[in-house]
Write a protein that binds this DNA or RNA. Structure first.
Lengths: 325, 325
DNA sequence: AGCAGGAGTGCATTCGAATGCAATCACCAA
DNA sequence: TTGGTGATTGCATTCGAATGCACTCCTGCT
């Protein structure tokens, strides 16, 4: 309401508006004495610079849009929190958008983003290929996390998935598992696809079959029946949420993990590490990944012409009781 | 970079900038024909109105700040997601801030918020009493969720906690528990305090002692030792995260829940409902609460002089295996 | 004393869109 | 044909802050 502007401060300090502006911006030259007076006046009036007005001139808002695809998993919330922390310490504000996994939401979200002049975008969502042009048109740097642009136009920070899945699968085989079932994710999902590929590769003849999943706990529970009827001796789930669901579902059927069946997950989410589940899973270093993504994004923001390489991280297998490798 | 302005569109459509502005704002009067031409030109140039520039005039940004106090619990992420969804469908963008439970962060966050001209604020964080003036100075409506302003200056949507805790405590006593331990939360936390008060009240002589906690899973695990040494026959935890921690901690000591000790939580978080924990807990209708908070906030935003009542919701006890009431 | 150099400052303009007011236009009735 | 009416439209200004440019002083040096 009674919003205080730089003119008000200027009047009270007996200087020009320019002087006020200069004391509040990084590279303004002001004499120490006037700076002090301006700050005093600002303090007294409770002045805060209007960053949106500033952005009209500078072209920078200090806001970064985060797009996350909130499958109902336990994994994305952790990513969001880390994003918030990382952006915060980079001095950026986070404008958060969820797509709820619906690809059509991406378009809506992108137009909204365009209207808000964010400095950059971090996305953990898949884009339809024809959105590429739209993103380019936004004219804002985009950083992908655990997604990859097939044409490598946009930099991506990812965690190696295929080899990891293959390695985990291999370990199962070497540990003597002979009938391994896969619980997969949505076909169009990047990580799901890569994990699946790796797993298939690593299982070899121990591969039994694939059950279609959707990343949710409930779907894990629901799959339990099918799993037992196929007499699998291990289930590789493409994420942790489903793995916890499978464990609970099997439990209800009176099937013991790991005595009767082994179960593995993928992600390294908090829920999976809870003592009662103690999943064997592939732990992604999300914190490092998110930090790196933010770091690289900030580089482009500060120096618009640089290109940035992205990065591929390696996670590691955590062995829990659910599959005592 | 090549940002398209209303002037560009105007030029291409052969009209004035005003016409463009009017076709893109709610209450602008434009002839259907010119509107069509403008839209066509806008489409061709990929024009998107700059909402921040607009906000200079209208005084509204369409952004709402959300402040959450991210204790590491499993509960706040769910709140964040619901907030996002609710704000989204109210047509607001969410600017998200975490305080990490540090009260000093609140001040930083509030000044940032002041600089970004948000239309309103939704907070699940406790404010130090002397921040009241600061918030008032922001001149922006504030809605509290599960926090209460002692002076009732700011509207709050909360879930009834004290009676609920008392009721739950009572049920434990009636079910024959005689030595009930409390695992409390931070003293300055609103919900923790109210839940504790209620529990004390409801337990009567079955109250054994209070162990200080901090809402985290780890702290629940750590408390297990103390719990057994005090020979409690039930533990009331002030939130679900700690309850799951307690269960796992006891498990490691070979103590069975519920055979040897009963455990209850508070929140109704997803993790607590997982089959392996199956907590008896007090489920808060967070979704309704968040929706109501957003609804009321939007009312004030649209009609700045209205006051809004807040609301108190009732949750309900969900009985799980962790304390088979 | 005279002058070059530099630091501080203010003026005026700019960013992109909204809006009050005045001008224009089409159309209808007399 | 003329005046009136309402609907559109454009002009000019405004929001709050940043910044190029020109101007004023104050130093310090010769």
């Amino acid at each position: 309401m009674a919003s205080v502007t730089s003119y008000d401060v200027a009047a009270r300090a007996g200087v020009s508006q320019s002087a006020v502006s200069r004391t509040f911006s990084k590279n303004g030259k002001v004499a120490a004495a006037t700076k002090a007076r301006v700050l005093k006046a600002a303090e007294e009036l409770g002045y805060q610079p209007n960053l949106l007005a500033r952005s009209l001139i500078t072209g920078k808002t200090g806001m970064v849009a985060a797009i996350v695809s909130q499958t109902s998993g336990r994994y994305y919330p952790e990513v969001v929190q880390m994003l918030a922390t990382a952006l915060e310490s980079a001095g950026k504000k986070m404008l958060l958008f969820y797509t709820d996994g619906r690809i059509d939401r991406v378009e809506e979200v992108l137009t909204e983003i365009g209207r808000y002049q964010v400095d950059g975008i971090i996305a953990t969502t898949q884009f339809a290929p024809d959105r590429r042009e739209m993103i380019r048109a936004l004219g804002r740097p985009l950083m992908l996390v655990n997604r990859v642009d097939p044409k490598h136009e946009f930099p991506a920070v990812i965690c190696e998935q295929t080899e990891a899945a293959s390695g985990l699968a291999n370990s199962l085989v070497e540990a003597g598992r002979k009938r391994v079932l896969l619980l997969s994710g949505p076909k169009d999902n990047f990580v799901a696809r890569h994990r699946l590929m790796g797993a298939l590769d690593g299982l070899g003849s121990a591969y039994l079959d694939t059950v279609k999943g959707d990343f949710t706990y409930d779907c894990g529970v629901a799959a339990a029946h099918q799993i037992t009827s196929m007499k699998a001796d291990a289930v590789m789930c493409i994420n942790d949420s489903m793995a916890t669901g499978v464990i609970d579902g099997l439990d209800r059927l009176g099937v013991q993990v790991p005595q009767d069946i082994w179960v593995t997950g993928f992600d390294g989410s908090f829920a999976g590490s809870l003592g009662r589940y103690d999943l064997t899973t592939y732990v992604q270093p999300i914190e490092s990944m998110v930090n790196e993504a933010v770091r690289q994004l900030c580089l482009i923001i500060d120096e618009p012409d640089t290109t940035v390489p992205g990065q591929t991280f390696q996670g590691q297998v955590r062995v829990g009781r659910s599959a005592p490798l």
